[in-house]
Structure formats: structure tokens, C-alpha cells
Design a protein around this nucleic acid. Structure first.
Lengths: 248, 248
DNA sequence: ACTGTCGGTGAACGCCGTTTACGAAGTTGA
DNA sequence: TCAACTTCGTAAACGGCGTTCACCGACAGT
């Protein structure tokens, strides 16, 4: 089973330890507190040793961001498993609420992964591709959203007047979505996932991300004493536009 | 006229120079490059001298954020002056497009002001109040949005089913809005700015901020080759929901 | 047993924020 | 005018930082 040599196992273990400590520092005292020396101190080694595992502090932060995406995806998937396989609307609620809950509980991680300029932190995910939400997390989100749309006859006029200039981009995204959903064993084609719906999904991500980021960064235009109903009402409206009845 | 002593003038001048250099560093090489020593070096003085003007680096960054808000507001106002006083719809387009243009042209500044966790950078604006979008900028935005709504009979059902729990918060925000708009000499009361419209305005800010932040941080779920029409189409929809005809 | 790689060390370089003691001007008031 | 005081700068120092480099012991493969 374990094809790894002793050396490789040890290496992988320290590698995990390093990121675990790095993450603890990020959570506790923010991005700037994630210093190589602090990590090393915590691990009982010296700072230069870390260069055997990471090219630089920036490299470490990049991989840390990957870890965070993976864990977020795992958390959302765990929530999903508690929901009936067929109640897709509830699954969407679960993922969206889970995303907000996670972001508010882990603002530093959220800022690192979802609010870093591209030059201070490359794209998240092992592939260097551009324009992805952190891969693992993105998959969960896209899959459930894609299944939602494909599962239901869409209201007429959904995503009406999608801008001409976006057809090409949306068509590409449509293919990614189809692949993602089909990977999960649900058969869908372009008919079940029309461009208008893909466009609507994009707009929904704008709203979900916008609300969560505004809340995390405290940039709502007034003091919202309890933002949760506002978020839920937004989700209800998004699902309502797709023809799903409201649901707590 | 100038009630300032010679000393005060000199002091204010250096203070501006400091922030000007700080800002240049922020733009050129990012937040982490805004170091006291680099600023001092650029100004031909030593780092401790900066403590005569600012309590700490963090304090400087806070005030820098204020400056940025002020400049952004000035830029948006300059654009506004080129538009007919009465074409409020065009004014809204101008402010919203200006915000996006500015954010894309100044990603580092955007990140500092609009995507900093509250503990790493206090609220923007001279008053320590919570829950404001950077004050100067916020004023421009709120004023034009408030005037837009008040200028027009609203479609029935706008902001239908605003969550009960938000009535109190929205009413408070409504008062702020009324004050802001009336300050500008436009007489409006609660009738012209109903809670549903205030709620719609909040949702619109979520979408506008969401789109801009996603674009700046490159976190759209797919590679959008030309995001501008997407943004414009979103604006058209927002205004359409308020009963305004589309307008390039 | 020999050889090479791997994962660690300690010293060093040049940054950084911040504090401290000190001095040289400018300002003020008798 | 001259003394006292305030303001704004300095140099030195402390501890912390990322990163590089030379070095070295332990392990792996032949």
C-alpha cells in the first residue's frame, strides 16, 4: 500500500506540520504574523530549514491558500452529506450558508484566499490556471449550482438579454460546468444548462461573494445588526429567480 | 485668510509629503512595501522622524486610507460635474463605472480601503464610527443613489418582502440617506425613499462591490475576457429594477 | 565501506518598526 | 535682548524579519 520510503513519509509529515503552524499563526494573529522564524520556533527548528520545503515565504503562503481551499471544500462537503441526495435546493442553501459561516469564522483565511491581489498571491489551486475560484472549493460550488439548474425546468426569461460579448466566455464556462457536473455522474447537456442560466449563476456568485466580503470587511453602508436574514433573503431571491420556492 | 503660523504650514506640508510617498510605494509595490524607512529614505530624512507625525505605521496606513477615499470621491465628483444636473440616471452610471475604473486602475488602494479586515485597519473616515464605507466616497455614492430613488416613482413591488428583522437597521439607514440627500439641497422625505427602495439600494451595493472586488482579485469562476459589458449589463438591470430605461 | 543526497545548523547581510537620549533650530514672553 | 520652551530632526540601539551560505551528521544505495 504505502509506496513511500521512510524519508518521504518523514518529509510529508514535516511539510504538514509546517503548514499547520503557519495556519495557526494566520488565524491567531493575521497574515503578517505568518513569519518563517515564528513557524520554525514553534516547530523547534531554525528558519533556514524551512527552505528545504518551500522556496520562499510567498511560496508557503500560496500553498497555505491551497490547503485552506481544500479544507473549506471538505467542510462544505461534510455539511452536504447530511442532506438528502435529491434535495438540491437544500444543498445550495447549505453550501452558500456554509461559505458565509466559514468566512465569518475565518476572516484572515478568507482575506488570504478570496481578497488577495493576483500579484501578491498567485491563483489558488495546484494548476496555475487563471480565473478560478480556489479549485477545490470552486468544484463544490459549481457542481451543486450546476446540478440545481439542470434539475429543474427553468422559468422563461431567465438570464434574459445576456450581453452578446459574453457568449463566448459563457459557453466556455458552460463546458466546464457540464464536465464538473457529469463527473459526479449526473448526465446533463447544453439543453439542461443554457447560457442564460450560466449567466445567472455568475451573477449569483457576484451577490454571494459581495455580501460575504462586505460582511467580513465591515463595509456595508450602515451598521447591520443582524446580517443573517439579509443573506438568507438574498439566497431565497436567487433561488426564487430560478423557479424554486422559498425554503428555510 | 491663512490663519496658520509658519510652523503649522511647514508641518502640514511634510505631512502631505509623507503620505504622498507612502502612496507612491503602495501603488508601485504593494502594502508591504509601505515601510517607514523607505518613506523616510525617499524624503531624505530618517525613519524615527516620522513618529513626529504618526503614532505608528498602522496609524499612517489608516490615514493613507482616508486620503484615498477623499481622492476617489474627488475623482467621482469631477466626473459628475460633466453630467447634466438633472440626468440622475447618467450620474449613477458615472459613479458606478468610475468606481470600477478606479478600482481596476488602483488595485492596491482598493484592497487597502475596501478589503481589509477591521482589526488590521480601522474604519476609514475621520470619525471612528463603525459600518461606513469610507466616508467621503460613501457620501458621493449614497447621495447620488438617494437622489435617483427620490427622483422617480418606484415600480410597485420594489424591494418586496424585505426581511422583518431588517426594518430597524434599514430605517436608521434611511435617515442617514435622507440627511445626506437633503444636505445637497434636494428635499426628500420618507415617502420618497421607502424602506423597500433602501433595501434595494443595499442589494445593489452588494452586487456592485461584489463584481468589482471579484474582478480586482481575479476570483470570477471563469476567465472573463471582457468584464466591462457584464458590469454594464448589471448596472442596467439594477436601474431597470428601479424603473429606469436602459441607457449606455 | 564509499559516495551522494537530504535535512538540519549557525553565522551573516541587509532590511524592518520602534524607543531613547540628545541637539539644533524656531518661537515666545518678560 | 535673552532666557525658557517647543518642535523637529538626528544617531544609536534593540529585537525581529527573509534569505543566503558554508558546513555537517545521518541516512540510502551500491
Amino acid at each position: 500500500m504505502t509506496e513511500a520510503t521512510r524519508r518521504e513519509r518523514l518529509r510529508a509529515e514535516t511539510e504538514r506540520d509546517i503548514r499547520r503552524q503557519a495556519r495557526a499563526l494566520l488565524v491567531a494573529r493575521g497574515r503578517d504574523a505568518v513569519t518563517l522564524r515564528a513557524i520554525a520556533r514553534e516547530l523547534g527548528i531554525t528558519a533556514p530549514a524551512l527552505y528545504r520545503y518551500y522556496d520562499s515565504r510567498e511560496d508557503l503562503l500560496r500553498r497555505l491558500a491551497d490547503d485552506i481551499c481544500t479544507d473549506l471544500a471538505a467542510e462544505l462537503n461534510a455539511d452536504l452529506r447530511q442532506i438528502g441526495e435529491d434535495d438540491i435546493s437544500a444543498q445550495v442553501y447549505s453550501v452558500c450558508r456554509g461559505f458565509r459561516r466559514w468566512a465569518l469564522a475565518h476572516p484572515q483565511e478568507f482575506a488570504l484566499v478570496f481578497a488577495s491581489t493576483e500579484d501578491t498571491l498567485g491563483s489558488c489551486g495546484p494548476d496555475g490556471e487563471r480565473g478560478h475560484v480556489g479549485d477545490q472549493f470552486g468544484r463544490v460550488f459549481l457542481e451543486v449550482a450546476g446540478r440545481l439548474i439542470a434539475s429543474h425546468p427553468l422559468p422563461t426569461g431567465i438570464g434574459a438579454d445576456v450581453p452578446e460579448n459574453l457568449h463566448a466566455d459563457l459557453a466556455e464556462f458552460q463546458q466546464i460546468l457540464l464536465a464538473t457536473v457529469n463527473d459526479r455522474g449526473v448526465a446533463v447537456d447544453e439543453q439542461g444548462l443554457p447560457l442564460g442560466a450560466v449567466y445567472h449563476m455568475t451573477q449569483s456568485w457576484v451577490r454571494i461573494y459581495g455580501h460575504v466580503a462586505l460582511e467580513v470587511f465591515g463595509r456595508f453602508p450602515f451598521a447591520v445588526s443582524n446580517p443573517e436574514p439579509m443573506y438568507d433573503s438574498m439566497l431565497a431571491q436567487i433561488l426564487g429567480e430560478l423557479g424554486f420556492p422559498p425554503q428555510p
